[in-house]
Design a protein around this nucleic acid. Structure first.
Lengths: 333, 333
DNA sequence: TAGTTTTGCACAAACGATTGTGCAATTTAC
DNA sequence: GTAAATTGCACAATCGTTTGTGCAAAACTA
């Protein structure tokens, strides 16, 4: 059913129907009687205008592209949820792309989204730089979670350095000196900043010589394998700092398997909290990210941008949630 | 940059450019030389045709609408991931809608998707019936996870009855007689079928008098509150059957809080497995749903449907993963 | 009553692609 | 060398909306 057919039914022009349905009846002096008739008929046949034609004519799609690395990671799932809700409340729909932490897929996705004429982009990019795309992206874009240094693309992220610094300091204050950090995907900004936070905290406490950084991606198996290696060697750390929720789960799995009881034999702290962390045994101390905040602020920023306003990057503070996976140890030094 | 501008640049007609870029050069006898020139220029300016215009002309959007109740539930997050990947591999993009288990939002979302002329719909509907929408949905649609009885809409789901029957039987075989079932959102088919599976197993084992069904939605807090109530009364169950992953987590939280050790004082089994279940203490016995299977089969079915083929509903079998949260109890009777 | 203003609506051109068809120019046939 | 066939491309209509503008009819004005 098109607007023309509806117009024929009503024995009037498509113009008039369109004007009524877009609420422009006053502006174009459509009589109340006519407007009524149009609305009734539209309701009765429950007609909805073809959005594709509308988009083409209006040069606007009311669609936002959301590109994230892995929707099955609860962090991103929650982010997606908030973003979807915020956008729906503002009359936009979201085209979802999962890049699987693969720059090729990511680039392809952005291209596709652009050719579909999205009104804006929200991207949690994989790499540290965006060699291929930065020039091509012609629509308002806000980066989520991850971002690029030295390029003035607006972004909204957790203060990863701060969170990691806090976590590490917390361990040090509890008396830990031999602390290993199991990182995620190197080259992604959250990872680099968390690593830097860890390093800074260690150095500022005179432990610059004892840095131990291992691991390679954000997966559970990375946490598992890295932990196994760490506990197999002499000089086993007294505490582990896992740089995301999935890594932390992998750590626990390995520690459980090798009977390294937490926190008696080893302490564990995670970046990125999850609801079930309090149910693990022991419950897991973690840095909680302001997930909802990131989503909301990102959408708000994107809208500012679409209104041709300038927006400043935003770093939201995370929070340490203390539970039972970190124990104090007697100071040796 | 439009195809016309590109054509002007090349000093030829838009027709020719379009035909080359859609690979129809042979069919329309475009010379190789011309085709080459077009491709080079298109590459150089990296031109991509406006998909909106294309969609309008071709009456096809290469877009699928995905409507799910809650993307932050890991079950649906995983489903979304599989679906997105399968669709991307077939050249489609996904418009994501989170209905928040609200029929109003769901209906609105479907309407919006239809007016956007999606080529197909994948929906995990909230209710048991679809009073408002069933007539209006004019595009191929496959239901996910949840479905409607007595209407021949194709669906792909876990065999919920079977899974619940297995879980309950498992408990009974371990000697449990007093088994409470904590359900999710009543009125959703998975819930009803799981409840029926529980009931059937109980009845077939002569425990028809001992049915105990409580709970009201798929949330963690429902599991928490329901469990608290159950253990407060006399005649506390010896086993709990939680009808989804979030409810199970809530159960554990309550049991932990009230020092009801699992599985010594009470056993727990969950419908819907999650990776971290093996790390909980005790590790959680659960019915594992074939999530990836559901996503893949659903997409395949949708494509069959779009090819005007008939498709049969599919019920995929879940599997019981035995861990440590269920203990045998001595038979009293 | 004639002139002016207001009211109510329709025509037609765009948005940017795709495609049936037509028509020169070139090649082939004989 | 002429007729027929083939090659190579462009014209114009179309998809379903929106919107600047135009033009009767109705309502005022004096």
């Amino acid at each position: 059913m098109t607007i023309k057919e509806l117009a024929r039914e009503l024995e009037m022009s498509a113009t008039t129907v369109s004007r009524v349905l877009t609420g422009q009846e006053k502006k174009y002096r459509i009589s109340d009687k006519t407007a009524q008739r149009v609305r009734e008929m539209a309701n009765q046949l429950d007609f909805a205008p073809n959005q594709i034609a509308r988009n083409l004519r209006l040069q606007k799609t009311n669609t936002i592209g959301l590109v994230i690395p892995n929707i099955s990671n609860p962090f991103f799932a929650n982010l997606a949820r908030t973003v979807e809700e915020e956008l729906r409340n503002r009359g936009k729909m979201v085209l979802l792309c999962d890049s699987k932490d693969d720059t090729r897929i990511e680039e392809e996705s952005v291209q596709l989204l652009l050719s579909r004429k999205v009104d804006g982009l929200l991207v949690a990019p994989v790499g540290e730089k965006w060699v291929h795309l930065q020039k091509k992206v012609t629509v308002p874009m806000v980066l989520l979670d991850r971002y690029f240094e030295n390029e003035d693309l607006p972004f909204v992220t957790t203060d990863n350095f701060f969170g990691a610094y806090e976590a590490t300091s917390f361990l040090i204050e509890k008396g830990h000196r031999n602390i290993a950090c199991i990182q995620g995907l190197t080259g992604t900004t959250p990872n680099e900043h968390r690593v830097k936070g860890y390093q800074s905290a260690m150095q500022n406490h005179g432990l610059g010589q004892r840095l131990r950084i291992t691991g390679s991606d954000y997966s559970m198996s990375n946490g598992y394998e890295s932990t196994k290696e760490l506990i197999a060697r002499a000089d086993t750390p007294t505490a582990l700092f896992a740089l995301n929720n999935q890594i932390a789960v992998g750590c626990m799995k390995a520690l459980k398997e090798y009977d390294f009881s937490i926190p008696d034999k080893i302490s564990l702290i995670a970046f990125d909290d999850q609801p079930y962390f309090e149910l693990l045994s022991p419950s897991l101390t973690a840095i909680k990210q302001p997930m909802e905040g990131i989503g909301k602020v990102a959408v708000a920023s994107l809208f500012e941008l679409m209104d041709n306003k300038k927006v400043a990057p935003q770093m939201l503070k995370p929070m340490l949630i203390e539970r039972d996976s970190v124990a104090p140890i007697p100071q040796k030094t």
